[in-house]
Amino acid sequence: MATFFGEVLSVYSRAVEEDDRDDEDGENEEDVEIRRELEEKRKVHLKWCSEECQAIEENSDKKRLCSHLVIAVGTNAAGFVSAFILNSASWHRVGWLSVWNERSRGSGPMPAPPAPGEPGCVIYQQKDDDSVLICQCTCYVAEDQLFQWTEQLFMCLQKRGLTVTVLSDVPVAEYKTPDYIHGSDVPFLRALSTSAYKGGVICPFVEQPNIVTGLPAAVLCHCQVHGIPAVLYQNYSDVIGADSYTMEAYRLAVSSTKGIKLDPPSTDVLQEFTKVSDIHGNLYT
């Protein structure tokens, strides 16, 4: 686009990409092969541990029974789940979702589950009660993988009797409101639920014109279309790293979930989960 001063600048649209190229015309076989290989690497796979695989095989419809699925997306949601729920010895890993994209380490998908502390999507269950599953997602799931991730997870779960709760961190800078938000009002929760969800929510609903994107949106979309009761709690916070105060905001969201016992951690334990955001060195030390 030409400007008043005679420069020619690129024009960017918020809606569409610049090029309007013909589809696949002029793409040679090598390009097609590279594209196909990349698509293969980016596929999302759900892997269960061997005992879990066996249990699923034994069910007539090859799906896992589950009364409640909790999905924690983001550093503080995952930190809350680790510190307040999974810290007790009764939870163990039963599966994980293998996700590889441009932000993952390594040149391809990892064959083994992520190590503790490594980003990933891991599924936990209690040893003496398999009705509740917790999925802790700390890795980046790209836009083109969100739908697949959700389909892979829900494909293995029986829809009947299932309720889903999603906990998600969001920066408060993305929250649109006519009034300015003071620091003391943060963090705060906002909820969204599917039509099939008849339970109450513990905070106000997300106000217009705010929207939800990413993994929480993909999960809620899926649940809405398939008539699964689901509720999302978005935690708007001004902290980028793990923060105990932000994690605490999730307590009420799961306190009444049957099958989940909240175990408030000691200060030492909580510090373990929040120490990643400590300043290790700066210009002034």
Partner: peptide
Amino acid sequence: LIPMVGNNPYATSAENANELSTN
């Protein structure tokens, strides 16, 4: 389509304001 959800963009009352809308 890239997933997104929100509540009812065409809300006319408090009753229908919190219906979920998809992409």
